[in-house]
Design a protein around this nucleic acid. Structure first.
Lengths: 239, 239
DNA sequence: CAGTGGTCTAGACCACGAT
DNA sequence: TCGTGGTCTAGACCACTGA
């Protein structure tokens, strides 16, 4: 039982919605019927439907039934970006390359100490990278990692995906992130490295990422030209 | 049984974490122990813990136990904005007022028809509002509603919270939203109405909102000065 | 009223991590 | 091996909806 039943059932129903067996705006069979049809208990059906509801694919209402809403991408023609992981996973490793502008170790400023919840004597890596997509300059990243959580970082690793290194080599798992998005105008750095014209709008994302242990592992600020890329968020109402 | 048990238990445990009975980095009692302590089945305990995990307050790992992570706001000193509802709910009704710049009905453009999934002959409201917080110009909103879904909109309603009208008077429930955030620079409108200086950075949020029925009810673009407010997102990793 | 989904139980077996 | 959380069952009662 590698894949749990509720997951298999969710996959099957998702597929039936996608292929039109359960068309949008229709009612799904009730949970008891589905339970018998899949040869499974009703709790298992409910768990499968809960998952689909949290994806925004269906909507359940007690006393009424379960509506099919259809794919979220039906609402617009954009598709939402799942952006928990980094640029490498979004664009595909073969499209992304990095140029390392700074790679230093130093004691954290008051701001960085605060963001990473560090003691004054705990050193941090300070990294500036220019990320390129298909050879085109795309994003400027300014990142801090606590040395104690990310030992053995090398120039080599910075050329690829740092997140892959954190996950695969250090076996660290991300617990969550808090992001703040804002607008700014291009300064010297963006003119020099992103081929911006001065005063052009720039989208800035500032984030703190923590591990499943609750320790903060990254504080970073990344900037890209607004004309190149925005930030898309899918928000499902769970009442 | 107005409030379900799993919710009451989640509230109680959240409180114990907050008050230090279960301090951060400690292990929670195991689910069987909690089940006996609360006089409840283990499934109910698990559902309570699932909720806390999705808030990022705890982290469960099979074979190990359940860690306390502590409040998310411990990760930074900002607090995340829960922004499903509008400005009125975020800032409090007594702080928000609106000035109506445009209030028209027209046939939708290709773009608007696409975003709202409308037929060419279905009219839409076109609304421009200047939202003020404590009397200060804060946000410029450009909004489209399909007439068929929002009958009887009046100038009066636009002065307050449209969302309150949709929920309380029309009994409509939001199913979800897709937002796209981007940066721009201030143009004539922002100079005139937001007291911006030309070329100042502006944060723009474009969104499509749909109902629990799957019908799209709003397409809007809102702009505010980047110096006034950013956009904050909390993202919990669910593997 | 009958039918829906929401909650809850008291068990059971499983996969995983540590010892 | 033992204890953990994850899954799953076969029932039960409830609140809500519509006819």
């Amino acid at each position: 039982m590698a894949i749990p039943k509720y997951q298999q059932i969710a996959d099957e129903i998702r597929d039936r919605i996608r292929t039109g067996v359960y068309p949008p705006k229709s009612l799904l069979p009730d949970q008891n019927t589905l339970a018998k049809a899949f040869g499974v208990s009703r709790m298992t059906i409910k768990k499968a439907l809960d998952g689909l509801a949290s994806e925004g694919l269906i909507y359940k209402q007690s006393g009424l039934g379960t509506y099919v809403l259809g794919d979220v991408t039906a609402h617009t023609n954009d598709s939402p970006a799942e952006v928990f992981e980094g640029l490498t996973k979004q664009e595909g490793a073969e499209h992304v390359s990095s140029q390392v502008l700074t790679f230093d170790v130093s004691l954290p400023s008051q701001l960085v100490r605060n963001k990473l919840q560090l003691a004054p004597d705990e050193p941090v890596y300070v990294i500036d990278r220019l990320r390129k997509v298909d050879g085109q300059p795309a994003v400027l990243e300014h990142t801090f990692f606590p040395l104690k959580l990310v030992p053995g970082l090398t120039h080599e690793i910075l050329l690829g995906s740092i997140y892959d290194y954190l996950h695969q080599n250090l076996h660290l798992k991300f617990g969550g992130a808090l992001r703040r998005i804002n607008a700014d105008v291009a300064g010297t750095l963006e003119v020099d490295f992103l081929n911006a014209t001065r005063g052009e709008p720039v989208l800035q994302v500032e984030q703190v990422i923590w591990l499943t242990t609750g320790e903060n592992i990254e504080y970073s600020t990344s900037r890209n030209l607004a004309s190149w890329r925005g930030y898309t968020i899918l928000d499902i109402n769970h009442d």
